[in-house]
Simulated assay, not measured.
Amino acid sequence: MLRRLYDWTMSLAARKSAEVWLAVIAFVESSVFLVPADVLFLPMALAKPERSYRYALIATVASVLGGIAGWALGHYAYEAVARPVLEFYNKFEDFERLRNSIHEQWGFLLLLLVTSGLAHLPPIKVVTILAGVINMNLGVFIISAIIARGARFMLLAWLLRRYGEPIRHFVEKRLGQIVGIGAGVLITLGIAYKLLAH
């Protein structure tokens, strides 16, 4: 099923309506969808490098709006909608672990929002729903999401504009690992700070 979803998403890059699909996928990725918007963003930006920043802006705006939808699902419809979505993707246990470790500590949640926005660690939909469940300030949430998602898509746009096709393999295979390691370091520092503060 996942492979079919991925292949379908990749096929959208060649369509005239690719920008609309990019916005749709970036939106639903931040709230309920499994496939990241990168799989559509990368081939679009490589096909038309002169439009890569435009695509990055579209993906950022749609992703932030999707994050707001995820926040609303967590805040207003956790049991009815958000929990079944998390269970469908086998993310409910991860979600509960995060929920129990945060206890309304927005600083740690902000760190998670940044790392998930940049490196999908943990998946962005988990963090957006969690932010709503613990009633994180919506304004702070939106600003954090703009910074995290904007940084990711703008960095990808810059890399693709500057290096073009040769960077694609690196972006697809190694950028996630590098950013993931950086995100892991940030999470470790956040946990260490939390433990030392008590």
Results as ranks from 00 to 15, higher is better:
A148V: 11
A148N: 09
A148H: 07
A148W: 06
A148I: 13
R149S: 09
R149P: 07
G150V: 14
G150E: 05
G150P: 06
G150H: 08
G150I: 13
A151W: 09
A151G: 04
A151Y: 08
R152V: 10
R152T: 08
R152H: 06
R152G: 08
R152C: 06
R152K: 13
R152N: 04
R152I: 07
F153D: 04
F153E: 05
F153N: 08
F153Y: 13
F153M: 05
M154F: 15
M154Q: 03
M154I: 14
M154P: 00
L155H: 00
L155N: 03
L155G: 00
L155C: 04
L155R: 02
L155I: 11
L155T: 14
L156M: 13
L156D: 03
L156E: 11
A157E: 01
A157R: 00
W158F: 14
W158V: 01
W158G: 00
W158S: 03
W158D: 02
L159T: 03
L159I: 04
L159M: 15
L160A: 13
L160M: 15
L160Y: 09
L160I: 15
L160V: 15
R161H: 10
R161T: 14
R162Y: 01
R162I: 03
R162L: 01
R162K: 13
R162W: 00
R162S: 12
Y163K: 05
Y163N: 02
Y163C: 01
Y163H: 10
Y163L: 14
G164Y: 03
G164R: 02
G164I: 07
G164K: 08
E165R: 12
E165C: 04
E165W: 01
E165F: 01
E165P: 02
E165H: 05
P166D: 09
P166E: 02
P166G: 02
P166V: 05
P166S: 10
P166Y: 05
P166M: 03
I167V: 14
I167D: 04
I167T: 05
I167K: 02
I167F: 08
R168W: 02
R168Q: 14
R168N: 11
R168A: 15
R168I: 03
H169L: 12
H169E: 14
H169C: 04
H169T: 15
H169Y: 06
H169F: 10
H169Q: 12
H169D: 15
H169G: 08
H169W: 05
F170K: 08
F170L: 12
F170M: 06
F170H: 07
F170R: 06
F170W: 06
F170C: 08
F170V: 12
V171H: 05
V171N: 07
E172M: 06
E172F: 04
E172A: 11
K173I: 01
K173Y: 04
K173V: 07
K173D: 12
K173S: 15
K173R: 14
K173C: 04
R174Y: 15
R174V: 12
R174A: 10
R174F: 09
R174I: 08
R174K: 10
L175W: 05
L175D: 07
L175R: 01
L175H: 02
L175E: 06
L175G: 09
G176W: 02
G176N: 07
G176S: 14
G176A: 13
G176C: 07
Q177K: 12
Q177V: 14
Q177N: 12
Q177A: 13
Q177F: 08
Q177W: 11
I178E: 08
I178S: 05
V179A: 15
V179C: 10
G180P: 13
G180A: 13
G180K: 04
G180Y: 11
G180N: 12
G180F: 11
